[in-house]
Design a protein around this nucleic acid. Structure first.
Lengths: 208, 208
DNA sequence: TTTATTATGTAGTGTACGATACAGATTGTT
DNA sequence: AACAATCTGTATCGTACACTACATAATAAA
């Protein structure tokens, strides 16, 4: 799902000399690695291969560039719908999501960009955008769990919202653990523990 | 446990005109609320009621002041040993810790200072100190769990390190959830889910 | 060819920040 | 009383930052 569509190419004037998508991708990597505040315009323009006026003409300002980079991150790196395309059960979807994080986050030196966004950040615009994106991610997780309930995979009385929030909480904690230097193996053990909280389908308990 | 002892009072010279402990406490509150980078020296000196030279004479520099403020936070707000003084079981200790966070964090507008420290921060000194403090907190949790294993509360084969890391991960996720505006009630539901992963003492399973 | 429009590179602007120089104030020591 | 030592308030310093003014280049339309 494209969240922001590229404005239609202007018909007149000097054409842009750089690839906007590619520049955005590089900006995303800088923001991901250094965070919003610590990524200076110099860092960004160097990585993007352009000068400040081009950046401002194409993206607005630093805040807008960050928000767009975060959206790009979600589409490219963390799109749950596509990640879950062929996963049959909610349990496998959640476990796969957590394990994916456990395996890949220790490589990214700064955790998950979505999780880290807006924390300790001066820009309230960035903070609000990050909160909204995380809420959206949680709602996607919730919907997958609700589907599991509808399909009989989970007990009928399961609180999908609370369960989604729990696994989202674990996911967010994993990023901090990864940023602190935890190994993939230790994070996988964390995931294994988290999955022990998964509501089993009536292992011999009255269901009302 | 005092981690840093106040240097002995110099015998000569003009005496300090402010209370160092009280100034440190106020600096801690500013850092807690705004984070390391976003707390300016102006914010700090205003809250502390002193001028920059006094700050530098008493605390070194901004980084050293932050590290000391973080230690103060641990002693005052988050000392697990004293928090667990009268808690008989490891399970109650962990659950109490999580519930305490679930109830109090939504009030603090920026989550737990220990958890948020060093994230998206320019100072590597602050980052390293934060990582060390979190590792220490996790080891305290691990020791409490190991005691539970020794005392027969937990199954003999339990991996204390993995279990401690799991609950520390949840604790860290709770701070992000709180910073995102989650209510105490919803966080308590997260805690309830997390406690479902607690290893029960052989509810009819072979214990080797 | 001329004109309008948009992008580019150079070279800055203003500002906020962390940190400090300095002179004067306040103490203990001799 | 004279001196040494330490702290305090004022008034900065140098720097890094986000951002932009401006002249010029490159394109499409007239």
């Amino acid at each position: 799902m494209k969240t922001i569509d590229t404005p239609p190419r202007p018909v007149r004037g000097r054409p842009r000399s750089f690839n906007r998508e590619e520049a955005l991708r590089r900006a995303m990597e800088v923001f991901w690695r250094k965070g919003y505040d610590d990524a200076s315009l110099g860092d960004l323009t160097t990585a993007m291969g352009i000068n400040p006026p081009s950046l401002y003409a194409a993206f607005g300002d630093k805040e807008a560039l960050y928000v767009e980079a975060l959206r790009h991150y979600l589409d490219e790196k963390a799109c749950r719908e596509t990640f879950w395309a062929d996963v049959p059960t909610a349990r496998a979807a959640v476990e796969g999501l957590l394990l994916h994080s456990a395996k890949t986050l220790p490589g990214a030196s700064a955790g998950c960009m979505l999780v880290m966004s807006g924390l300790n950040t001066s820009s309230s615009k960035v903070r609000k955008a990050a909160i909204a994106c995380r809420a959206n991610a949680e709602s996607i997780l919730k919907k997958r769990i609700e589907r599991g309930i509808r399909e009989g995979e989970l007990p009928a009385g399961t609180d999908a919202g609370a369960l989604a929030k729990f696994y989202e909480t674990v996911l967010q904690g994993l990023s901090i653990q990864a940023a602190d230097g935890a190994s993939p193996k230790s994070l996988q053990a964390v995931v294994a523990n988290a999955m022990r909280a998964w509501p089993e389908r009536s292992k011999r308990r009255r269901s009302t």
